[in-house]
Write a protein that binds this DNA or RNA. Structure first.
Length: 472
RNA sequence: GGCGGCAUAGCCAAGUGGUAAGGCAGAGGACUGCAAAUCCUUCAUCCCCGGUUCGAAUCCGGGUGCCGCCUCCA
């Protein structure tokens, strides 16, 4: 079975056939860097990062491009508000983007192009669109001429009239058609601007994405992703621009993730019902946040809630707990469980892949992971040990899962960092508790355990001694 | 008005024709000095009505409810 994706162009699940397999180009709309991003914004970043990881795991050579919009109205307004330049604002929030994204385990894109660094490509693209008769100049502005581009509306499956019927119409517009959108905006006093054949100005929002996507990934790119709110007008306009410029199909597969809701309403900056990732991160671990995002299908809306995040944290904890026992398990030969565990792991691996192949069904794939967890725990419970082979198979499985979903943080579980004074302090308390228990001072022993638990340190007594770990 | 999505146990959530994955929470039990972790047991007939079918959560028709896009927005 090949990998299949739901394509918003056809509104169907389609087998994934890259333009030039095994190479795959993915373009995802990145943030406008005028502020911290919120937890809703992080959904596509996580989803498409997982898509990229999975395609790599499947053997594709993925080139992943995610832009930064570093010039637009929001940027200009915010910079003015803060009394800094647009460039300074961009620099600052690109840094903050990476701080949050890195913390969430979102891999860096192969290219993170910025609009302001691609003015020549943008100008070239506009020139082609005008040359092909799909745009017109109006006093230093350049507008895309939607009437000239017959397929306009194909992503939305609506014609111009239908698109217009619910829209607010700008009565005073000089545009040929109300849906004509700006490719280039004439300079306004005090705003950043660049030279162009039509006078100084700056690019419209939509043009940067199509210009940069085609620059890095070719005229026809395999996958273009983003949040559903970009379907119209942003992605519709990108198609119009790119295809008007090149005459070739712009994107093979359009993928859009569902919204993150807050109290069952779309989380958005404009509604004001958002929580920055920076803020949420103080309360919940990155693993819990990733698990939460992956526990539902990417196209479904998910509702942000404390209960949801806590459930996710518990689930992730169970996974980690299993990995921990796996690594701590004694090794024995010729165990009864050997063959059945091997089989269970193999089954889980197959299901994991077939679910992921089915339009990135991460919720199903997580189910497969828990089936493996169950099998490992049961074997370990019954035998008190694992064979070396089983251990290795289980390890391989978990590493594959972590590589694709990034919800385990295996190095963190193994505590691979050098011992520090904090660890020493904890070990010392555990030693003290051991003494107390030896002297049957259970009250004293429990007090130490409770104190540590309050700090998020969990103790586990076993015949081999007391182990500890940090809760998520 | 046009277009699109969703409705599965207390909560989250897979499953698109063959008789309901998985997780969280809860209950009982095992293990433990007590816990934690783990294991065992337990916990749904899939919004409503009608239809197609030997058989439907899954297909069709009709309802009801919720959400989104058509305006900056991941």
């Amino acid at each position: 079975m090949p990998f299949a994706v739901y394509n918003d162009l056809s509104q169907k699940k389609e087998p994934f056939v890259p333009v030039d397999s095994p190479k795959v180009g993915i373009y995802v709309c990145g943030p406008t860097v005028y502020d911290f991003f919120h937890i809703g914004n992080s959904r596509p970043f996580i989803i498409f990062d997982v898509l990229r990881r999975y395609l790599r795991n499947r053997g594709y050579q993925v080139t992943y491009v995610q832009n930064f919009t570093d010039i637009d109205d929001k940027m200009i307004n915010r910079a003015a508000e803060m009394g800094i330049t647009v460039a300074e604002l961009a620099e600052r929030y690109i840094g903050e983007y990476f701080a949050d994204a890195d913390a969430l385990g979102i891999g860096r894109a192969d290219v993170h192009p910025r609009a302001t660094e691609h003015i020549p490509e943008i100008l070239e693209s506009i020139r082609k669109i005008i040359g092909n008769g799909h745009a017109y100049v109006l006093e230093g502005d350049v507008y895309f001429d939607v009437l000239s581009f017959a397929p306009y509306g194909k992503l939305m499956r609506q014609n111009l009239e239908e698109l217009l019927s619910g829209a607010r119409v700008d009565v005073n517009s000089r545009k040929k058609h109300p849906l004509d959108f700006a490719l280039w905006k004439a300079e306004k006093p005090g705003e950043p601007s660049w030279e162009s054949p039509w006078g100084r100005g700056r690019p419209g929002w939509h043009i940067e994405c199509s210009a940069m996507a085609t620059k890095y990934l070719g005229d026809t790119i395999d996958i273009h992703g983003g949040g559903s709110d970009l379907l119209f007008p942003h992605h519709e306009n990108e198609i119009a621009q790119a295809e008007a410029a090149t005459g070739k199909p712009f994107v093979k597969y359009w993928m859009h993730n569902g919204y993150l809701l807050m109290d069952h309403e779309k989380m958005s900056k404009s509604l004001g019902n958002f929580r920055t990732l920076r803020d949420v991160r103080k309360q919940y671990s990155p693993l819990a946040i990733r698990y939460f995002m992956l526990s539902a299908h990417y196209r479904s809306p998910i509702n942000f809630s404390a209960a949801g995040l806590e459930q996710a944290a518990s689930g992730a904890e169970r996974l980690r707990s299993c990995y921990r026992s796996l690594e701590e398990a004694p090794e024995k030969k010729n165990l009864q469980s050997e063959a059945s565990l091997k089989e269970a792991l193999e089954k889980a691996r197959e299901r994991f892949h077939s679910d992921m192949d089915d339009d990135l069904n991460t919720a199903g794939a997580l189910g497969a992971v828990f089936e493996a967890v169950k099998a490992i725990n049961t074997a370990l419970h019954e035998e008190g040990a694992l064979t070396m082979e089983n251990k290795e198979e289980a390890r391989t499985f978990f590493h594959m899962v972590d590589e694709v979903l990034g919800i385990l943080d295996i190095p963190g579980i193994l505590r691979e960092t050098a011992p520090n004074s904090e660890d020493a302090r904890i070990e010392k308390l555990i030693e003290k508790r051991k003494e107390a228990r030896k002297n049957k001072d259970f009250a004293g022993a429990d007090k130490i355990r409770d104190t540590l638990l309050e700090e998020g340190i969990v103790l586990k007594d076993s015949p081999e001694g007391t182990k500890w770990y940090r809760k998520l």
